[in-house]
Nucleic acid binder design. Structure first.
Lengths: 127, 127
DNA sequence: GCTTTGTATCGAACTTTGTCAATGCTTCGG
DNA sequence: CCGAAGCATTGACAAAGTTCGATACAAAGC
């Protein structure tokens, strides 16, 4: 019922289950309107943005915004830097390029090993 | 607390809330390991793949696979064509290119209006 | 017609995720 | 040292998503 009663076996090049999980984690971080607006604001701005501004941008409460920023951080898509009282956020362009590349030819196999580590790290990127 | 006690207002170019919701819907379709493996298998194969093969590829039950295929279809990422007994699936390359383009410069503003409609349509793409 | 096989849908359990009030931590200003 | 402000964390709840058994639908073969 499942082997090959109707069609030829799959061609090679398909990603593994582990690769799929890692890639899905990045897409999961992008799969929320609030996080996309945060990313968009960061990309629209030239430099960095204060975390306090995201509350008005997202239209959500401060803990909610903080949660979304954490998700984006853990996905390696943004970086936060504490400068005095405030934390400034910026996108990680190389990470966005990776996601684009993953969609280019085949889905996956685009994440570098060292950047995979950033997927699990939660460090707030100190100065 | 929210207006501008610490930093300048956001630059223009940020996507709207509605645009963010639509773009997030596409990423949501990509944010699952099973769906990514299905997409990867479709991209690795030259032409189309029979739906029956996805059960072994995904390692999930048939209703589960059918559900994921529906999500990918509603996102406009794949198309299914019934040919006799079996349904053959293929990727929609233009849709993948759109997602890539959305990540290029600013996040969003890349979805065409007519392809936005495909986001809500559920038609199985007849021959 | 009936049976078989592939696919989609339904329904229900389980898990994950988004949201925010309350709280704690860190830093600056006095 | 103390109070104020920005940010992160906790905990709790609602909403959404994943999974699969059971079932219905569609097409081919007898």
């Amino acid at each position: 019922m499942a082997d090959s009663p109707c069609c030829p076996p799959l061609a090679d090049g398909a990603i593994s289950a582990a690769e799929a999980v890692e890639l899905a984690a990045v897409f999961k971080a992008l799969a929320d309107p609030v996080r996309l607006r945060i990313l968009s604001a960061l990309l629209a701005a030239e430099g960095q943005i204060c975390a306090c501004d995201f509350v008005s941008v997202a239209g959500k409460a401060q803990p909610t915004v903080s949660h979304h920023l954490k998700v984006l951080r853990e996905a390696g898509l943004v970086e936060g830097t504490r400068r005095g009282t405030w934390v400034w956020y910026a996108v990680v362009p190389s990470r966005l390029a990776e996601v684009r590349q993953a969609l280019q030819t085949d889905v996956g196999r685009a994440l570098q090993t060292d950047q995979r580590r950033a997927l699990q790290t939660d460090q707030p990127a100190q100065v």
